[in-house]
Each structure stands twice: as structure tokens, then as C-alpha cells.
Computed example of a mutant assay.
Amino acid sequence: MQHSSTQDTLVGLFVAAGIAGLFFLALHVSNLGSFVEQEGYTITARFENSGGLKIKSPVSAAGVKIGQVSDISFDLKTYESIVKMRINAQYNSIPDDTTASIFTAGLLGEQYVSLEPGGSNEYLKENSTIEITQSAIILEKAIGQFLFKSAEEKK
């Protein structure tokens, strides 16, 4: 069977398309899919423990992604984690008494910030702070407490 230059070209294009597809899949999975920053506003929340939360982690409300984490820092005075979130501009009517919690997607999935809207008539805007927060639950810590309690009950 003879190889023609047309077959070689088609195989090369197929391989190149496969590599490009894998590249875009990797960008999407790692939350780097969009290089253009969307219009929006930045809000801040303080957590006792931000767990495995990362920059570009999703921010969601009612299960819908409405933004992403833009910065995580440590406050040396209060020993808290300061999480800045960039909320997309179309979600500009989130009440200012909203609560923020850090959850894990699935049992071992990535962590994300979930916003639970309150009932205020005032809305979050640029540089607003969410006052009521719930820190991440650290799986290892919870298992350790369970094992410690189990050992005490057997005594």
C-alpha cells in the first residue's frame, strides 16, 4: 500500500486538531478558559480558614457560576483569610446581607465559594464586604475528631 502526500497531510491535520482539542480541554478544566476578564465588581469576605480554595475558583449562587476568586491573602492582625471575588456585572442585584460559605464540589472535588442571598433591599457593589461567612470544612480534621471521639467512647 502506497502512502501519498495527501494521506500524510490529512493525518498531520488530524493529529494537530487532536492536540489543539486537548489543549483547550486542559484550559477549561483548570479554569483558565477565558483570557479576557469580564466586566464586574469585586467583593471581599473574611474566613477563619479558606481550606484549599484557589485563585480562579468558582463563586456560585444557587448552583450557578456568577464569578471567580481573584485574590486570597492572610491578615496578620486577625489571622484570617481574606478572599476577594470578582462578580460578573450581570449579577448586580445581590443583597448586601448575603452570606458566603466555602464548599467542596463532590467528595474530593475542588473548593468553591457559595453565596446565599439575604433579603436586604441594598445590593453588593464594588469593594463591598460580606460580613457573615462559613469557613471550609477540613476533611482530615473532621475525620480526626470522629476517630478521637470513637476511641474515647470505647474506654
Rank of each mutant, 00 (worst) to 15 (best):
V69G: 02
V69N: 00
D71L: 03
D71F: 09
D71M: 05
D75Q: 04
D75P: 04
D75T: 05
L76W: 11
T78Y: 04
T78S: 15
Y79I: 10
Y79W: 09
Y79Q: 12
E80A: 08
S81D: 14
S81H: 12
I82N: 07
V83I: 07
K84M: 04
K84S: 13
M85L: 08
M85H: 07
R86P: 09
R86A: 11
N88C: 04
N88T: 06
A89M: 10
A89C: 11
Q90R: 13
Q90D: 12
Q90Y: 03
Y91N: 15
Y91S: 10
N92F: 13
I94F: 06
I94K: 05
D96T: 12
D97C: 09
T98E: 03
T98G: 08
A100E: 03
A100D: 01
T104L: 03
T104C: 02
T104W: 04
A105M: 06
G106P: 00
G106Q: 01
L107Y: 12
L108W: 08
G109F: 07
Q111Y: 04
Q111F: 05
V113L: 09
G118V: 10
G118R: 10
S120K: 02
S120H: 05
E122D: 15
Y123H: 14
Y123T: 11
K125W: 03
E126A: 14
N127R: 10
S128F: 02
I130W: 03
I132G: 02
I132E: 13
